[in-house]
């Protein structure tokens, strides 16, 4: 890790890359292309870019029609609108028809800090995971976002990609081309911290804190939330003494819930760091919000240390 990169920029650039390789790739946007960065595709391939106005429901159903006629549409808007406003369209037409529509939920979690609760998707992963047949990808950095876009292209069926607004440390650019279900970001033997998205960097910071207390923490990025990599998670959990999850999402229907389900027959102690059953709010920085809602390295380290102490 040496530099911070932007996932949204990676999303837009990778769309252009796959658009060059595959003429069936089309992109739809709901008047937020300058934010989601789908504007890069509009500039590169205007004839395959469809501005759909501030009409997310129409955008998703139109994408369904394009997919039914053989295109591979990528739609983007803020995660809160993609997963919420267009939920019925995603469920009824895209998912029941197993149509090849790719949905990018941008500025997810608390990352749209200033806009407040209406713009902060704290339940999008739960909503999308609840839909039968949906693939849900939660990359942790720019390089993994590129892999997620490419993986989505190659998956035959609906895919939701969760993208965070702020710049994030680069952990995976040196890794191979494939999108792995999970990626070990840091090795460790006492506790495993499973995280996705922006919480991966918090988990790495937590591992540093734990190291100073003599605790060795393994940090694992979960890139595929659905289908959830149960075996891989279980194998790692069995190799440590405790497990902590960390997500920029409520604890309901997200990573904490999936890991708990995975460990249901295991005796490994588990705790989680997530947003409570509450909405977000405005703040002047995402860091301020993450402190307020308990999404910090200190919280992760504290939960890990406590689990090990009480074992």
């Amino acid at each position: 890790m040496s530099r911070n990169l932007n996932m949204r920029k990676a999303y837009g650039e990778e769309l252009v890359a796959i658009g060059a390789e595959n003429q069936n790739v089309v992109v739809l946007e709901a008047d937020l292309g300058k934010s989601t960065m789908s504007i890069f595709f509009q500039q590169a391939y205007p004839e395959r870019f469809f501005e759909m106005g501030i009409a997310e429901q129409d955008m998703v159903s139109t994408a369904a029609g394009l997919a039914a006629a053989g295109k591979i549409p990528f739609c983007s808007t803020f995660a809160v609108f993609m997963s919420g406003r267009a939920y019925d369209q995603i469920r009824q037409t895209v998912a029941i028809g197993r149509l090849n529509v790719k949905l990018c939920g941008s500025s997810a979690g608390l990352s749209d800090f200033g806009d407040g609760s209406t713009h902060q998707a704290v339940e999008d992963v739960a909503l999308m995971c609840a839909i039968p047949g949906m693939t849900v990808l939660t990359p942790c950095d720019a390089a993994d976002t590129r892999r997620a876009v490419r993986a989505a292209l190659n998956i035959d069926g609906p895919v939701y990609i969760r993208v965070v607004r702020n710049d994030l440390p680069d952990y995976t650019s040196e890794a191979g081309a494939a999108l792995n279900n999970i990626r070990v970001i840091r090795e460790g033997g006492d506790v495993a911290v499973f995280a996705h998205g922006s919480m991966v960097s918090k988990a790495v910071e937590a591992a540093e804190l734990l190291s100073s207390q003599g605790i060795s923490a393994k940090v694992v990025s979960i890139t595929v939330m659905k289908p959830f990599p149960q075996n891989e998670v279980l194998n790692i959990a069995k190799s440590v003494k405790a497990v902590v999850t960390a997500e920029d999402h409520t604890y309901i229907g997200g990573l904490a819930a999936s890991v708990a389900l995975t460990l249901r027959k295991s005796s490994v102690p588990l705790d989680y760091v997530a947003i409570d059953d509450v909405f977000g709010q405005s703040a002047h920085s995402v860091e301020e919000l993450m402190v307020h809602y308990g999404l910090t390295a200190e919280h992760i380290a504290e939960k890990a240390a406590s689990l090990l102490k009480n074992r």
């Binding site: 469809f50 429901q57 139109t62 369904a64 029609g65 394009l66 053989g70 295109k71 369209q89 037409t93």
Partner: peptide
């Protein structure tokens, strides 16, 4: 789910 089909038709027409 009513209201979707015209949008879907638009997508097919565009394709």
């Amino acid at each position: 789910s009513l209201g979707h089909g015209l949008s879907v038709s638009n997508g097919m027409a565009l394709a």
